[in-house]
């Protein structure tokens, strides 16, 4: 099995915190923690597998060219709404979303749309909601947080369009080369 740096990081951090636990609370705390972790794992697993599959399926409907057209400099308020929707349905972790953000920026998407996209993906991404939040936090709290956060990416996008006039961004042309 191929191990990446971050895999080792997780093993290291688990061993380190586990060792601290053992020093402070003794052997029984290790047993309690493993029991908790195992129960969570069983709770999450059916959702995780279903959610990952949904992520793969949704990718089949994404058309890069159309998205870039809809998110360009002159896309206005509808561009922000479109970016928010795209963020909501983007599956996967930062390793899928940031390559998309970068590609969209190089292709001509404006900063408001990109900020709205990231905010939507991180705050109201359906994928994370289904796989992680609902199984762990319960339906009530998850849905409440989701509904309350719906307008927030639009606010962030509008703020970013104002801010970019004060803080200049890296030139797109120089990135391409």
């Amino acid at each position: 099995m191929k191990m990446s740096k971050s895999d080792y990081f997780f093993i290291f951090i688990a061993s380190f915190t586990g060792f601290l636990c053992y020093l402070i609370h003794g052997l029984e705390s290790l047993y309690l923690a493993s029991n908790y972790a195992l129960n969570l794992l069983i709770l999450i697993l059916p959702m995780l597998v279903g959610g990952l599959l949904i992520g793969g399926l949704v990718q089949q409907f994404i058309d890069q060219n159309k998205i870039t057209k809809a998110l360009g400099e002159k896309s206005g308020f509808s561009g922000l709404i479109f970016a928010t929707l795209a963020g909501v349905i983007t599956p996967g972790g930062p390793f899928t979303s940031f390559p998309i953000v970068f590609a969209l920026y190089v292709a001509g998407a404006d900063i408001g749309a990109l900020v709205a996209y990231i905010a939507a993906w991180s705050l109201i991404g359906v994928y994370r909601l289904v796989i992680w939040e609902i199984p762990m936090m319960g339906l009530d709290l998850s849905i409440l947080r989701f509904l309350v956060s719906i307008p927030l990416p639009l606010i962030a996008g509008i703020a970013a369009r104002r801010l970019v006039q004060l803080i200049p961004l890296r030139d797109r042309e120089s990135i391409k080369k």
Partner: peptide
């Protein structure tokens, strides 16, 4: 598995 364990350990620390 390691992430969940870490969370459980941190919760005790």
């Amino acid at each position: 598995p390691f992430a969940l364990l870490t969370a459980a350990f941190i919760a005790q620390l």
